[in-house]
Amino acid sequence: MSSAHSTPSPHPFKSTGGLNKWSERGLTTIFASCAYLIILCALFIFFDIGRKGLPTFFKSEAPFINTEFFTENPQTLVTFHDADGKEYAMSSKNFDTWTKANPQIQVVNEHRLNYSAGGILNPLAGTALLVILCMTIALFIGVAAAVYLSEYCGQGRLMSAIRLSILNLAGVPSIVFALFGWGVFCYMAPILVSEVSDRSLLSFKVSSESYLSFEGWGTSLISGAFTLAIMVLPVIITACEESLRAVPKGFREASFALGSTKWQTIRKAVLPYALPGIMTASILGITRVAGETAPIMLTAAATDKNNLPWEGLDGTWSFFGQSVQALPFHIYTLAKLPDDPLSKPMQNGATLAFLLLVMGFAMLSIILRNRVRKKLKW
C-alpha cells in the first residue's frame, strides 16, 4: 500500500544552486574565448599579409595602381651601380633596353635576383585554370559517387567500409597524393600518340597512324588538375552525400507516387534541393586545392614560362598537355631565394594576390549558393 504523502520526484531541469550557475558561466567564457581567439588570429594573419602586400599593388604616381604587377610575367631583378656610385634596380627586360640606350654608362656590381621583378600574370592564370579544371572534374565525379552512395547502394558492410575509406582518404597528406599523381598521371595514363615512347608500359594500335600508349601525360595542366581532383574527392563526396541525405524522404515518396523512375526522382526531386550543399562542397574543395604546393610542384608546375597558357597553341591537347606556372609554387620559389629586401615586395604581393584569388573563388561559390537557396523553399 503506497503512502498518502509520497515524496514528489525532483524536477530534472531545475537549478540546484549557485555552483552550477557559475560553472555554466565559466564554460561559456572558455568557449567564447576559444572562438574569439581563432577569429583574432585569422584577422591578424590577414592584416599582416595585407599590410605587407598592398604597397606592391600601388605606387606613388598616377595611375597609382601597379598595373605591371598584374599584366607582366615574372622576371629577374637586376641591381647595379654606375661609375658615380648611383644605384639602379630594374627588371631584366628594362635592363636590356636601358643598356642599349646608355652604352656610355659603366655597369658596376651587377647582381641578379630571379623572379623578383615583373608581375604575376602567368602564375595567376595558371592557378585559375588549375582550380577551374580540378573542380569541374571533382564535382562531376564526386556528385556521381555521392548520388550512388546515398540513393542506390544499401547499408551493408561493404558500403560501410567504402565510406570509412573515403573518410580516411580525407586525412592523407597532400604529398602522398602528389606522388600518386606523379606516378599515375605523369607516367602511366593512356594517351593517343603517333609514335610509342620507350617508357610506355603498354600500347595498342588504334589506327594506321596512331597508338593508345600508357606512357602518361607528363608534367601538364591536366595531370595537375586530376591529381588535385583526386585529393579533394573525399571532402566533396562526404559533403554531397550529407546534403543528399538531408532532403526529406517525402519528396522521394511523392515523386514515386506520381510514377517517376528512380533517376527522374533524383534529378527532379532530390538534386535541386541538395544543390546548396553541393555548392558548400565546392567551397570546401576550392579552399583545399587552391593552396596546395606539393601536387602542383610534381605534376603541373613550370618554374619559368614566357607564354600564357592560351598562347601559341597548335591543338586542344597542347592546351591541356602544357605545364603551367602557379601562384603557390611561385611563392615557394620566391621563399627559397636569399633573404634580400629587394625580393620582399614580390613575395608579399604574390601572397596577397593568392589570398585574394582564393577568397574570390570562395565568395563566388557562396553567392551562387545563396541565390540557389533563395529559390528553394521546403
Rank of each mutant, 00 (worst) to 15 (best):
T67W: 14
M297N: 12
L167F: 07
A281L: 05
W217P: 02
A178Y: 03
I278S: 03
S3W: 12
G119H: 07
L139S: 14
Y88I: 01
F329C: 13
I367M: 13
P328Y: 05
I237K: 00
T299Y: 05
Y152I: 12
N73I: 10
I222A: 02
G360T: 15
T136V: 11
S323K: 14
V270Q: 09
R163A: 03
G50N: 03
F361V: 03
I237S: 04
L40K: 03
L233W: 04
V108A: 01
P248C: 12
T16S: 14
C186N: 05
T219W: 06
T299P: 06
M1K: 13
K344C: 04
A42F: 13
L113I: 15
L27M: 11
E292I: 04
F80W: 14
K100T: 09
I366W: 14
G53K: 12
E195K: 13
A362Y: 12
T16I: 07
H111D: 11
D82P: 04
G17H: 07
W22A: 07
F46M: 12
A32Q: 09
P63D: 01
R373N: 11
N73W: 03
P63Q: 02
A89L: 02
D339I: 07
A144Q: 12
T76S: 10
L275V: 08
N348D: 13
N370C: 08
Y211K: 02
R112P: 02
Y88S: 03
S213D: 00
Q106P: 00
I283S: 15
I105Q: 13
S9I: 10
K21W: 11
V131G: 02
I137G: 00
N20C: 08
N20M: 11
E87P: 00
A35W: 10
T219R: 15
K21Y: 11
A146W: 02
T287W: 02
S220E: 06
W378C: 04
G360D: 06
V358H: 02
I237G: 01
F361I: 01
L192G: 05
G360E: 03
N307V: 11
G18K: 12
E311W: 03
A32I: 08
V143T: 11
D84R: 15
S150W: 00
Y332F: 15
D339R: 09
S223D: 05
L228H: 05
P63I: 00
G315C: 11
V131K: 02
I175C: 07
H330A: 11
A290L: 02
A300P: 04
P345E: 04
D84K: 15
T219L: 09
A350L: 05
S207N: 12
F31K: 10
L364T: 14
L228E: 04
T261A: 06
W263M: 09
P295H: 00
I266D: 09
T127M: 06
I286E: 05
N20A: 13
V131F: 04
